[in-house]
Simulated scan of single mutants.
Amino acid sequence: MTRGHYPPPGVEIESIEELDAALADGLAPARLRLQDLDLTDYHGLDRRTDLDELVVLGGTLSPALDAHLRAHGAIIFPNDPDAAPIRPYRARLYTADELYADLAAGYPATPDALAYGWYRNGLRHPDVFSALLQAIHDDSISDALAEFVRDRQVIGVMGGHAVGRGTEAYADAARLGFDLAERGFLVTTGGGPGAMEAANLGALARSADDLTRALTVVADVPSFADDIGAWAACGLRARDLLATPDATPTDPRSLGIPTWFYGHEPPNVFAQGIAKYFSNAIREDWLLAHSQAGIVVLPGAAGTVQEVFQFATRAYYADTTPPPLVLVGEQHWREKLPVWQLISALAGDRLMASRIALVDSVDDAAELLRTR
C-alpha cells in the first residue's frame, strides 16, 4: 500500500438480506464485515472462492461453511460461549425481554445477572481475553446505539436511582418522560431504576390514562433493593399495559444506557432499546454525546453530579453552542448539593452561559426545552 492510499472502507452486514444485496451488487467479500449473523442454513457463499479477507464477527456457522470460509482465507472471529455469557459482536441493542430471559427462575438465572457475575469475576481474576471480549462488546453496542438514535432528537434525563415507585418524585419524572416523548423527543436515561426508570416508563406511555395505570401497577413493588426479580416482573406487567402495535424500535420513544459497572442497579424494562455497557466511562460519554437536544437533571447524588460536570466540561470547552442543560429542584441544587453555584461560575461569559438553567418543576423543564 502506498503512503496516503487506503483500501475502501469495510461494509457492516447485519442481516442476511443485507448480505444477499451486497453480493448481488458485486461488493468484494474482502470489504464485508458479517456481524453476528446466523449463517447455519446460508448457502450464498458455498460456491465462491474469492473469500480472502472476508471478516466474520461472531454469529453461527455450519461446520461445512466454517471449513469453506477458512479454506479460502476468510478471517473468522468466533463467539466463545464458554468464555463469556454475552455475544461480543452483537449488531442490535438489548431488549428487556432478552436481559430478563428466564426471570421465572429468579433474577440470578437471567442473562443480565450472569453477565454481571462474569464481569465481577474478571475484576477479581483479571484475564486479557475477557477484557478483549468486553471491549469488542462495548464497541458493538456503540455502533448499534448510533444506528438507534440516528435522525432522532435525543434528550437525556438524569436522576437518582433511589427514587421509589409510588412516590411523587417518581410520578414527576414519569410525567416529564411522557411530555418530552409526546413532543417528539427520544427520551434517553442511564437505564437504571429510580428517576431513570420513571422517565423511560413515561416516555413509553401513549396516553395519560395508560401512564396512570402503569404507575399504579409498579407501585406494588416500590424498590429493587429487596428482590430484583419481583421488581423486574412487576415492571414487565406495567410495560405490557403500555405496549401498542406502533410502539416499535422503528419509532422509538424510550432508550436506556445502563452499565454492568453498576450491576447492583438492574436495568429498567421500559426502554425500547437498551445499550448496556461494561465500561461506565464509555457509557456516560455516549449518553451525553447523543443528548444533543438537551439534558434534564433531576435530583440525584454522586453519579448524577458526575454527569452534570461531565456535561459542564464538554460545554466549557465547546466552540459551538452546546445543548441546553436544565437542573430541576432549586433547593436540591442550591442548598443540599450546591452544584448550581459552581456550574454558573464556570459558565461565566462562555457559550454555555445561555444554555444552563435551574427550575423548580418538571413542567418548567419541559416547557423550557420546548422553546430552546
Rank of each mutant, 00 (worst) to 15 (best):
E98I: 00
G106A: 10
W260H: 14
G202R: 06
P299F: 01
E18Q: 15
E168T: 02
G159S: 08
A347M: 04
L298E: 09
R70D: 11
M1Q: 14
V308I: 15
D127C: 11
G10P: 13
R48C: 00
G300W: 04
R239T: 01
S130L: 03
D82W: 10
D349W: 01
V328A: 07
L32A: 11
R253H: 12
P9F: 12
V221H: 04
H137C: 01
H125G: 00
D66Q: 13
L368P: 00
V339I: 14
G303K: 05
D20H: 15
V362F: 04
D138P: 02
I274M: 09
D20S: 14
D251S: 13
E98G: 08
I228M: 10
L27N: 13
A214L: 01
E307G: 02
P88C: 04
L325H: 04
D20I: 12
A347L: 04
L180S: 07
S344R: 14
H332M: 07
D360Q: 08
V339L: 10
H68I: 05
H290M: 14
D143G: 01
A84N: 13
T189R: 08
R31N: 05
A21G: 07
L369E: 07
V328L: 09
A173E: 11
D66N: 12
A205S: 13
G192S: 13
N121M: 06
P258I: 03
E18G: 11
A144T: 02
D227K: 06
Q134S: 05
E197K: 06
M158W: 09
G192Q: 09
Y316E: 03
V55H: 02
R239S: 03
D46S: 11
A318S: 15
E14A: 14
D41K: 12
G303L: 08
A353Q: 13
T259A: 11
G202W: 01
D151P: 04
G194C: 11
D364C: 08
K336V: 13
G294L: 02
A104I: 08
C234T: 15
L201D: 05
D246S: 15
G164I: 04
L346S: 10
V217H: 01
M1A: 15
Y170A: 03
A24K: 15
P85K: 14
T60L: 04
L180I: 09
H290A: 12
V339D: 08
T212V: 03
G229D: 08
P266W: 08
L215F: 01
Q341V: 11
E307Q: 09
D151V: 05
A365K: 03
N121Y: 12
L39I: 09
L32M: 12
A353I: 03
G294P: 02
D240W: 06
D220H: 13
I76P: 02
E12S: 14
L133R: 10
G177M: 10
T95M: 10
D220Q: 14
A105Q: 15
R152Y: 00
F129C: 04
Q306W: 00
P266N: 12
L351Y: 00
L255Q: 09
R334G: 06
G273V: 05
A315R: 05
P29V: 09
A318R: 11
A233K: 01
V217W: 00
Y42N: 06
M196Y: 06
A347W: 06
V221F: 03
A312P: 03
A366C: 07
R175D: 05
T371D: 15
T250K: 15
